[in-house]
Every structure is written in C-alpha cells, then in structure tokens.
Design a protein around this nucleic acid. Structure first.
Lengths: 208, 208
DNA sequence: GTGAGCTTGTGCTTTCTTTCACAATCTCCA
DNA sequence: TGGAGATTGTGAAAGAAAGCACAAGCTCAC
C-alpha cells in the first residue's frame, strides 16, 4: 500500500468501481478479476489494480477480488457506509429535477429540504420536501446535521449560498451554477457545469 | 504556436475563458491580461498563456489580450461560431429540466426535439417542443441536421439510444445516464454522472 | 502433493500536465 | 525620442498519472 494519499483521478474511478461491483454483486458473482472490471468499465486492468492498491491489498492472485468484501471496503473508503443528509438550494428546473432524483432517496443519501429565495416558491411542496426560505438554511442544516449541499441557483447567488452552507456546517458542496465559487474555509466544492459540457462537446465536433 | 493539438485539460479550460471573456466584454473592458483572467477564474496566469498559445498568439506584451477579438477567435476554435441543433432523449425529470434550460435556446444552441419511448409521453409538449417516438430519431435528426444529442434515459436504454443517434448523423453526445456507453464509430461522448459526483463528494467529507 | 494456469501488487518507464522564469516586445508619458 | 513599466510567449524543469511487465502467490485438478 503506497504511503501518500490517492490521486484525484483515482478517487473519481473509485466511484465507477463501486457501481460496477454493485452490479456484479446483483448478478450473483462472488469474485471478479481486474480484467473483468476492465471489460465492464473500460478502465484498464493495470489501472484498476494500481488504483485499488492505494488503499490496501484486496485481491488474491489467481482468483481476483472477492466482490462483497471489496464492496464493503470501498464503500467505507468513499465514506458511503453511513447515511448522509443533503439539501438543495435553488428550486428552479434543475433543482426540482435533482430533488426528484431517486439517488437522493437511497440508503445512503436523503434529501431533507429544498431552499429558495423566491417568496412565491417558499412554503410550496417539492416532491416530498417543502421549499424553505434560504435564510433559514444555516439553522436547519445545523439542527439536522446536513453534510452535503447542492447549489442550483443562478450564478449571482451561488457564492452567498455557499457561505450560508458553510455557516450551517456543510462541508461538501456540489455546485451546478455556472460560476466559480471561492470555497469558504473548510469546505470542498465540486463543480458540474452543464454549459461547459455543451460547449466542450462542440470542440470535438468533426471539423468541416 | 505548438505543432500538435491541444491537450484535453486545455480544451476544458477554453470554455471557462470564454465565459470569463463574455462577462468582461459585457462589463465594457477592451483588454484583459492573463493576470486578470486568473483573478476571475482561478486559473493561473501562466496556465492561461500556455493554453492560449496552443492556438496562436493572441496577446500583446505590455497590454494583454484584446477582449473582443479573442472572444471571436476562441468561439471559432470551439466551433461555437455557428448554430448547433440539439435533441434530448429521455423525457423524465432530468430530461425535462434540461429541455427547459435557457442555454439551449441561445444564439448557438437550439433544441429541436425531445424523444422518449413511453407511449403516454409521446405526443405531449415539453416546453416549446413535442415529445416524439424515439424510433423516429434517426429520420428527424438526419432531416434537420442535428449535431448534438443529450441522453437522459435510464442506464439500460443508453447504448441503444447512442446508436440511434449515430445512425441519425449525430457526432457528439452528452450522456447523463449512469452507465458507460461504447462510442459508435465516429462519435464523441462526454459523460456527466450525477451519482458519481455525489459519491465523490463524500470521499472528500472530513474524515471523523 | 504437485505443476499448470491465472491473477495480483508494484517498481520502472513513458507520457502527459503544470509550473517556473526570463528574454522579447509593446505602450505610454515626459 | 527614449526609458520605465507591464505583459506576453515559450523552453526547460518539475510533477503527476498511466502503461508495462514480471516476480510472487494462490487455486485447482489430477
């Protein structure tokens, strides 16, 4: 097991391995080799082995990896082995769509509230939660022990929301707004930028 | 100007520069330095200069970059200088949210249709387009010259949809379904994996 | 018990990115 | 016109990630 901590690209792939393992497990297989993972994920076998080796020795030579134990270990490493509460700020189209997402009603994630600053939305139901005033965010997230925040507001509001979240004890933020947020002290931010993806895809369109 | 083509990380940043430049332009500035871009985007000035240098010499020493010309040049490089037609397949929550996205009704992108395979959805309106039978996709995209496809179906359907898209002449695909798609010959795929983002964010939660 | 056959973990090599630093170039004001 | 000040473009160095190849280890059939 290497000494330093895993590089970011490895962490991104961990989530892919996890999905693969869940599927393999559902299919009833007990064991899978790095070559088998390559076949299902497209990630080369060598890469798989190197990635996993950052966290320990999980495989048996000649046999491969035992699916269930590896699933358990990886879930633990990814900190997906206990429930996490999530809030969404910005009850527009995207916010509403994400709020309805089944992945936020799983054994791991649960959506506890949605927030907006638009008075005509506040108080209304959104799927199975109620839209609350964003000014209540710090109090509510603190009280409920919310750890993850999702931002789906317009760009102008994003920085302020991130700060409210930090104030409310949220440590990890997923930002869908098309702007850079300067991380409040102690928080991690990941950006998902739909417009960027759309533009980048154009770059790769065949040149005339 | 370096000979080879730009590395992928550079292309991703190009889109960020573009957004920054649009904003700076809207503010009425004529000129911006790499340091100025760093201030607004967080990308280091040296990185900015190197990225841009892959495509030409756009700046003037002592002055910086002329905003409008650079905007034009970058738009051209990203192939964002002419309209692109887009279709969405999968009229669920996420598909519907994306279909309503203003960015798909801009001077560059226009949404021409949404598709689904669910009979109860086919024929219904979705914002300003109609939901059509996915089996009509190849014909319609071919006729209309659609270049970009967005997949928001469940995982099981994604591969088949990608193939229909390829058949309909689509060359670039944005895949939101939580699965790996094997690119049909001649198409580029970019994946946006929401569940993955959510899981990865957990990894970065402070360890207890 | 033993050997054939897989498959892992990992050091080494190669490739890809980022950072650094500075000569060259341009502007602008006196 | 000339010189101070700013800022670029880029080669060279450092750093990060991916690919490779193989010794070591495990299994299983006979």
């Amino acid at each position: 097991m290497p000494t330093g901590r895993a590089p970011e690209p490895t962490v991104l792939r961990l989530s892919i391995y996890l999905r693969c393992l869940r599927q393999v497990h559902a299919e009833g297989l007990d064991t899978i080799s790095s070559a088998g993972i390559q076949e299902r994920t497209g990630i080369t076998a060598g890469q798989v082995r190197k990635d996993l080796s950052y966290f320990g020795e999980f495989g048996k030579p000649g046999l491969g990896y035992a699916v269930e134990p590896l699933l358990t270990r990886l879930s633990h490493i990814m900190q997906l082995d206990r429930p996490r509460k999530v809030v969404i700020v910005g009850a527009g189209n995207l916010g509403a769509a994400l709020a309805g997402y089944q992945g936020l009603r799983s054994s791991i994630f649960s959506l506890v509230a949605a927030f907006d600053n638009n008075l005509s939305k506040i108080g209304r139901p959104l799927w199975d939660v109620e839209i609350k005033d964003v000014r209540e965010l710090p109090r509510i997230t603190q009280e409920q022990g919310v750890e993850i925040g999702i931002i789906t507001t317009p760009a102008e509001a994003a920085q302020g929301v991130a700060e409210l979240m930090a104030q409310g004890g949220i440590r990890s933020i997923l930002n869908f707004s098309p702007t850079r947020i300067v991380s409040p002290q102690g928080t991690t931010i990941r950006n998902v930028d739909l417009m960027k993806e759309l533009e980048v895809i154009c770059f790769y369109l065949p040149k005339p």
